[in-house]
Computed example of a mutant assay.
Amino acid sequence: MRIGELSRKTGVSVRALRHYEAEGLIGAARGGNGYRDFGDGAVEAVRQIRGMIESGLPIRIVREILPYLDGPAALMPDVPCAYMIGEVARQRDVLDRRIRALTGNRDALDAYLRAARSAAA
Rank of each mutant, 00 (worst) to 15 (best):
I3S: 09
I3P: 07
I3V: 14
E5M: 06
E5S: 03
R8A: 15
T10A: 04
G11Y: 07
R15K: 13
A16F: 00
A16R: 01
L17T: 01
L17C: 04
R18I: 01
H19A: 11
Y20G: 09
E23A: 14
E23Q: 15
E23R: 13
L25I: 10
I26P: 07
G27Y: 06
A28R: 01
A29W: 06
R30W: 06
R30V: 06
G31Y: 01
R36A: 04
G39A: 11
D40I: 04
G41W: 00
E44N: 09
V46A: 00
V46K: 00
Q48S: 12
M52L: 15
E54V: 03
S55R: 03
G56T: 02
L57H: 01
L57N: 00
P58V: 02
I59Q: 00
I61W: 06
I61P: 02
I61G: 03
R63W: 02
E64K: 15
E64W: 12
E64R: 15
I65C: 09
I65V: 15
I65P: 10
L66T: 11
L66G: 09
L66E: 10
P67L: 08
L69T: 03
D70R: 15
D70L: 13
D70F: 11
G71S: 08
A74T: 14
A74F: 03
L75F: 07
L75K: 12
M76G: 12
D78F: 08
D78M: 12
V79N: 13
V79M: 10
P80I: 06
P80S: 03
Y83M: 14
E87H: 03
R90V: 05
R92D: 11
R92K: 15
D93Y: 06
D93M: 11
D96T: 07
R97I: 00
R100S: 08
A101H: 01
A101Y: 02
L102H: 05
G104K: 08
R106C: 12
D107G: 08
D107C: 05
A108C: 05
L109H: 06
L109R: 13
D110F: 05
D110Y: 06
A111T: 14
Y112Q: 12
L113S: 04
R114N: 09
R114T: 12
A116C: 03
A119Q: 10
A120E: 12
A121Q: 13
